[in-house]
Design a protein around this nucleic acid. Structure first.
Length: 415
DNA sequence: TCTGGGGTCCTAGGACCC
DNA sequence: TCTGGGGTCCTAGGACCC
């Protein structure tokens, strides 16, 4: 194949959350383990051990369903700090193999290994060495897929699971993909799968027989990308970016599902305050200012609305975020309706200061100092130490210990 | 058996401007 | 007057991923 073909690795940790929990509690090893919360809680499975999967348990399944399918499973709450710590260890190993590393999520990464043959040998040698180094440094297993594109690397790592390495030799992409289920293509979910089935497409090989124009007609822009993917190309969207290109977040959000639905406006607004504080904190951590604030509201019956408002000037202040979220809530809440979930979402980021009114600017700067001090206090003494909600009349705060990183798994206020 | 939380990208309609 | 089109921004919602 072309001499300029890239060599991309996709490294995917095996049953990551479960494996990390096993490091902390070896008695879990070999057992049916469900990470994400307790068996009677509102929530879903973040990760299931291979033992539990034998009973049909899989991630995103309601915890209560998992408990019925696998009554003897051990249910554990997630520990985001532990996962982050392990993820960082993995990252350190990866960067010792290539400078072009990109964590795609907490438990998977892409490496551009193009041109490293002199240093690390051929792809399979490098992959073996990497595999071993990860194991010895972190005691965790992973699988590695290797190919000429992110797509091929990603699909092949999935096929290598668990604890395997799979190299798709350049030129063999189509042959490798043809027998696979269309569902194996990243980005093809339930809905696309159904549409494809309606066209008589079950496997990637079937898809590859359509021409680009036909798929574009049927699926728009996504159809064109799909056509490329059937050939193993990183066509369109995020896949088409260079590995390791820098990645500022495009949005920051926090949401909360109540253990019990509520129609109490005071409780709801104090939750909004807390969520706004969390969003503001993350904005400040990233040095970002958001122009658009969005409220998410889910009712008891699961109907969900989002309502957004764009500010004249970008902000990173808790109070401004909260004011918007609260205004959106007051304007859109069906009074008396039971609320299940609330979310506060910030987007349309803009570089620090455009041209602000000078006096306004000075006032805001003082506030920013106040909030930064509060952040430091929270770092030191914990999330519940400092709250700006104290001025809320009658508002009582839910005593939840939010997971600051927003990783899957950890849940719930106790009540 | 009810359905978490944090993201990304895409579509589509309406406002508004030229 | 009943008739445009393109571009961009804003908002709402949905598919999908881990």
């Amino acid at each position: 194949m072309p001499a300029f073909a890239k060599t991309i690795f996709h490294v995917d940790m095996d049953a990551f959350f479960v494996s990390v929990e096993e490091l902390f509690d070896p008695s879990l090893k070999g057992k049916a383990v469900v990470v994400g919360g307790q068996r009677d809680e509102r929530g879903v499975v973040s990760a299931a051990s291979y033992e539990a999967r034998k009973f049909g348990v899989h991630s995103a399944m309601p915890l209560r369903t998992a408990a019925k399918l696998c009554p003897h499973a051990i249910f554990v709450n997630g520990h985001p700090e532990r996962y982050r710590e392990c993820s960082e260890k993995v990252y350190r190993v990866l960067t010792s193999f290539s400078p072009l590393v990109e964590m795609a999520s907490i438990d998977e990464a892409y490496l551009d290994m193009t041109g490293t043959a002199r240093l690390h040998g051929p792809p399979l040698c490098a992959a073996h060495a990497l595999h071993q180094k990860i194991k010895s440094d972190t005691q965790l297993n992973c699988s590695i897929g290797i190919g000429v594109s992110r797509l091929i690397a990603k699909v092949s790592s999935a096929k290598a699971k668990p604890h395997g390495i799979l190299w798709v030799i350049p030129g063999q992409e189509t042959k490798f993909l043809a027998p696979l289920d269309v569902r194996d293509i990243p980005g093809v979910g339930k809905v696309t799968e159904q549409s494809l089935h309606a066209l008589g497409v079950q496997r990637v090989g079937d898809l590859a027989r359509f021409n680009d124009a036909f798929l574009q007609e049927h699926f728009g822009k996504w159809g064109l990308a799909l056509a490329g993917k059937a050939r193993g190309e990183d066509a369109g969207g995020w896949f088409d970016t260079e590995v390791g290109a820098d990645t500022d977040p495009k949005s920051i959000s926090h949401e909360h599902t109540y253990n019990e639905d509520t129609a109490n406006p005071d409780q709801i607004e104090s939750t909004l305050m807390r969520l706004s504080e969390m969003v503001g904190r993350r904005l400040r951590e990233h040095g970002l200012h958001a122009r658009t604030i969005q409220l998410k509201l889910r009712y008891k019956d699961f109907t969900t609305i989002t309502r957004a408002h764009s500010l004249p000037a970008p902000t990173q202040l808790d109070t401004e975020i909260f004011e918007q979220a609260r205004a959106l809530f007051r304007k859109n809440w069906r009074k008396g309706s039971q609320v299940r979930l609330l979310g506060v979402h910030a987007s349309s980021f803009q570089s620090a200061s455009q041209q602000e009114d000078l006096i306004e600017g000075a006032r805001r700067q003082r506030w920013q100092q106040v909030f930064s001090a509060a952040d430091r206090l929270r770092d030191k003494f914990g999330e519940s130490t400092v709250s700006l909600a104290s001025g809320l009349k009658g508002g009582f705060r839910e005593r939840t210990h939010e997971n600051p990183a927003g990783l899957p798994g950890k849940s719930k206020g106790q009540q």
